[in-house]
Amino acid sequence: DVSARFPRRRRALMPVRWHHGTFTLDGRRVRVPTAQNSPPLWVRLAREVPYPVEQVRSVTLLCEGGRLFLDVTAEVPVATYPPGEGPDPARVAGVD
């Protein structure tokens, strides 16, 4: 019967996150795990990740506007200042 149709998905592409230890970061390439007995998926990036490999905690693959993006979460050390030095207390910054 040609009139039979498959149901449409309500959400086409959902974000997928991989945590530290489940993916491999190699320069401008990321290897993410796939289903058992299938080859691994290598994703090529447009640019290198701006953090050292040991600081990267998770990566999230998401689709926005028909394009794929890789969101990288990294652990960045907190800035510390010697006593008596540091940011100017008279300077004010705001967040919108």
Rank of each mutant, 00 (worst) to 15 (best):
A90W: 02
V49Y: 01
P52L: 13
V30C: 04
L70I: 04
S58A: 15
S38Y: 15
A35H: 08
R17L: 06
G21S: 12
Y51T: 00
P82E: 14
P40V: 13
V72T: 09
R9L: 04
R31Q: 14
A90L: 05
V72G: 12
V78Y: 09
W18N: 10
T60R: 08
E64N: 05
G94D: 12
A46D: 07
E54C: 09
L61A: 04
V56E: 06
R17S: 04
A46W: 02
R29L: 03
G21L: 03
V92S: 03
R11L: 00
G21C: 05
R28D: 10
W18K: 09
V43L: 14
A93L: 11
V78Q: 14
G65W: 02
P33A: 00
T73I: 05
F23S: 11
Q36L: 04
P89M: 12
L45V: 13
L25Q: 03
V76S: 08
W18E: 08
D71H: 00
D96V: 12
R47K: 03
V16C: 12
V32P: 03
D96S: 11
G27K: 14
F6C: 02
R57W: 08
R31M: 11
R47Y: 03
P40Q: 10
S3R: 04
R47A: 14
D71L: 07
M14L: 13
V72A: 14
C63I: 03
P15W: 09
L41H: 08
D26F: 01
V59H: 07
E85V: 07
P83A: 13
S3L: 09
P39R: 13
R44A: 10
G65H: 04
N37D: 15
E75T: 02
R5D: 02
S58V: 07
F69H: 13
L68W: 09
P83S: 12
F23L: 09
P83N: 07
P33S: 01
V56L: 08
V53L: 12
M14V: 13
R28W: 03
P33I: 01
W18F: 14
D26S: 14
L62G: 03
W18A: 14
S58H: 05
E48I: 07
G86P: 09
D26M: 11
L68R: 04
S58E: 06
A35V: 05
H19N: 04
H20S: 15
P83H: 11
A93R: 14
V95E: 07
G84H: 09
P52K: 15
V49E: 04
R29P: 00
E54N: 09
A35Y: 00
R11V: 01
P77S: 10
H20K: 15
M14Q: 06
L68P: 00
A90H: 10
V59D: 07
F23Y: 11
G86D: 08
L45G: 06
R8G: 01
P40T: 09
R67F: 08
M14F: 02
T22I: 01
S58K: 11
S3K: 06
L61W: 05
T22R: 14
W42A: 07
A79M: 12
V16I: 10
G86R: 13
G94Y: 07
R57D: 04
V95L: 10
P77R: 15
D26Y: 00
F6I: 02
C63E: 06
V78S: 05
G86W: 07
S58D: 05
G65N: 06
R31C: 11
V2W: 03
A4Y: 02
E85T: 14
D71A: 05
E85M: 13
T73G: 02
Q55R: 07
P83K: 14
